[in-house]
Design a binder for these strands. Structure first.
Length: 304
DNA sequence: AGGTGTCAAGTATTA
DNA sequence: TAATACTTGACACCT
């Protein structure tokens, strides 16, 4: 059952971007401060948009604080911008909004290379610090992939992931969730690692189509939903449609209602949150809603 | 002002 | 060994 639809970062229909950035070569303290202030102000405008459209699921960009985990950024931004962050957090809570983050492809916790793991940890600590500074609860998640193979076996790669994950600060681990990817680790493999760690799994529909697990997904999804405890909040899935003509796994601009209907066919009856990963962002959400309405399908939380 | 090459970071594939 | 895709937008330099 569909509880909420959400989207990622920019609000295209209002030209709001929350990820102003600069090049490393001109990342001075002043420049970074100005960018942070701009991004936080943009996030506030994004929240107003979410309120107007009764959208209660949203992914905050990793670029909100530029170079947050890079040594060039020595700003104690969580202090300096603490009041602004707390204000945003209060707004988020008042809206009943569930926010999450999704560190990018360079955050690889299972790398056999120590400096890369160190950087991944720094990036995850940044994400946790951001969500903590907003004062969101443990239903605000940080979504990561499990990483690469490095010419070795999948069990070894997942063991390395679990070992490094277990050593993370609790502030990170309580928010950490893992997602099936479109090339290596399928839904079934990821759920086994997640159970070993006691953390939830975000199921990604398009990744599953590109990289399906051996077992029937209808049998795996109940196990995935079960990884979400009351403290973690509702199960969350990622939904996108295949880009026509793109390589398998490439995101389309919009999300086809048929993909959501197919997901609902195989998903358990429990309510879940659904993050749309589409190039057209908020426009994709609005359009999908419009396509669902005639089918008598709406988000459960819109009733409340 | 607009067009375009480039950008912190990793991994894996292809040439 | 080197280039490139992934995904992605946005900067920054050039015309």
């Amino acid at each position: 059952m569909l509880a909420r639809l959400g989207f990622v970062a920019s609000v295209l229909s209002e030209g709001i971007t929350t990820s102003r950035a600069c090049r490393l070569s001109n990342a001075t303290g002043d420049r970074l401060r100005a960018l942070i202030a701009e991004n936080l102000a943009a996030l506030e405008r994004a929240l107003a948009f979410l309120e107007r459209h009764h959208i209660r699921l949203y992914r905050i960009t990793s670029n909100l604080i530029p170079f947050a985990s890079h040594p060039v950024n020595t700003i104690a931004w969580w202090d300096e911008f603490g009041p602004a962050l707390r204000r945003l957090g209060t707004r988020i809570r008042d809206l009943g909004l569930r926010v999450s983050t999704h560190p990018g492809q360079y955050t690889v916790l299972n790398s056999p290379h120590e400096p890369i793991v160190r950087n991944a940890i720094a990036e995850l600590v940044y994400h946790a610090r951001l969500l903590d500074a907003l004062g969101t609860d443990a239903t605000s998640k940080i979504v990561v992939h499990t990483g690469g193979l490095y010419g070795g076996s999948k069990p070894d790669a997942l063991d390395r992931f679990c070992g490094n994950a277990r050593a993370l600060p609790d502030a990170v681990l309580r928010r950490l969730v893992i997602e099936n990817d479109d090339r290596l680790f399928d839904a079934d493999e990821v759920v086994r690692a997640a159970r070993a760690l006691g953390i939830p799994v975000v199921f990604d529909w398009l990744h599953h189509l590109a990289n399906p697990c051996r077992r029937a997904i209808g049998d795996v999804l109940p196990e995935i939903f079960d990884t979400w405890t009351a403290a973690d909040g509702r199960p969350k899935v990622h939904l996108s449609s295949q880009a026509a003509g793109g390589r398998p796994g490439a995101h389309a601009g919009f999300v086809a209602a048929a993909d959501l209907l197919a997901l609902l066919q195989v998903a358990p009856d429990d309510p879940f949150d659904c993050m749309l990963e589409a190039k057209e962002k908020d426009r994709a959400l609005i359009r999908l809603r419009a396509e669902l309405a005639p089918l008598g399908l709406r988000e459960l939380d819109l009733e409340a």
